[in-house]
């Protein structure tokens, strides 16, 4: 029994130690399939790959026409081969547990020297860049014995697409006027679908995910049918903690709140939350 408890404890420690996913952030923060000069920054802190310096990317996206397509850095020939990842997929070690791919990147493949300038190039979507909406990735060692999967990375659309949440402008800095939108028409939350008196909650965070400011009950306007918006200037939302200012804000998180009234009883309901990284503008 003692051994069983010990094994469970050890497994719990192991799981909590390596339970995190690798993260991907880009510079600039908002990119579409055709954005140039993008830096893809990977962080493997908290994963089973922590502490390693020779790591490779394995990445894929779904082509509507031909199905899953691997990133061209991952293979040299005509198709991806998990057991034989290309040296082109080796990530440049930055520091700590961070690695990066800087575009444009020039590599040698079977057909010769190739330069990839955009995400569309990396997946071979040069003729149909709008076809790639998001891509998945995992970080691995050369053999593939050790690996850690990250969340899918969603690209900004090349054409306007209705979405549950959006911001205006699509790319925005922490000193700009920001409008966040919630399109109830696209919600599957039956409570929010029947809610009234929609308001917004905005949370501003620094680069360590610390909450610098949270403001509830921001008024919303219905700009289009069932699409609610809330406009604000981050620096005017409220007082920042001592020693902090809008300059420290790198990300916003927001959700919308509504009221359902039944038999005189008012119930507050909330939408899902969404987050947005601020770009850096001059």
């Amino acid at each position: 029994m003692k051994k069983l408890i010990l094994i469970i404890v050890v497994m719990c420690i192991w799981l909590t130690t390596y339970s995190q996913k690798p993260t991907l952030k880009t510079i600039p923060a908002d990119i579409d399939a055709l954005t140039e000069n993008v830096a893809l920054i990977f962080d493997v802190t908290g994963t089973s790959l922590e502490g390693m310096t020779d790591l490779y990317i394995w990445s894929w996206c779904n082509d509507i026409k031909s199905g899953p397509t691997e990133m061209k850095l991952c293979y040299d020939g005509s198709a991806g081969d998990w057991g034989n990842v290309s040296e082109n997929a080796k990530l440049k070690y930055v520091e700590g547990n961070t690695f990066k791919i800087q575009l444009p990147v020039t590599v040698t493949r079977n057909e010769g020297e190739v330069t990839f300038s955009t995400i569309a190039d990396l997946f071979g979507f040069t003729e149909n860049p709008g076809g790639i909406k998001k891509f998945g990735f995992l970080i691995r060692d050369k053999s593939g014995d050790k690996q850690a999967s990250g969340d899918d990375f969603t690209l900004a659309p090349l054409v306007f697409e209705e979405s549950l949440f959006r911001t205006f402008p699509t790319s925005v800095s922490n000193t700009d006027v920001v409008t966040i939108f919630y399109n109830v028409n696209l919600s599957t939350d039956y409570k929010m679908l029947s809610a009234n008196e929609i308001s917004a909650t905005v949370i501003l965070m620094d680069d360590n995910n610390n909450v610098l400011l949270r403001v509830d009950n921001l008024p919303c306007a219905e700009e289009r049918s069932n699409e609610y918006s809330c406009t604000f200037l981050a620096e005017k939302l409220g007082d920042f903690p001592t020693g902090k200012s809008v300059v420290d804000v790198v990300e916003l998180e927001a959700f919308f709140t509504g009221i359902i009234e039944t038999n005189g009883i008012r119930i507050t309901v909330e939408s899902d939350a969404f987050s947005k990284s601020f770009s850096v503008f001059e």
Partner: peptide
């Protein structure tokens, strides 16, 4: 007026390209 130049370049609809901010803040 605030204009999203990337949206404009990608021919987004007007409501996703420009926003009149003149009276967007009621008291400001």
């Amino acid at each position: 007026v605030q204009t999203d130049l990337k949206a404009k370049a990608n021919a987004y609809p007007d409501f996703a390209t420009e926003k009149d901010l003149t009276n967007i803040f009621e008291n400001n």
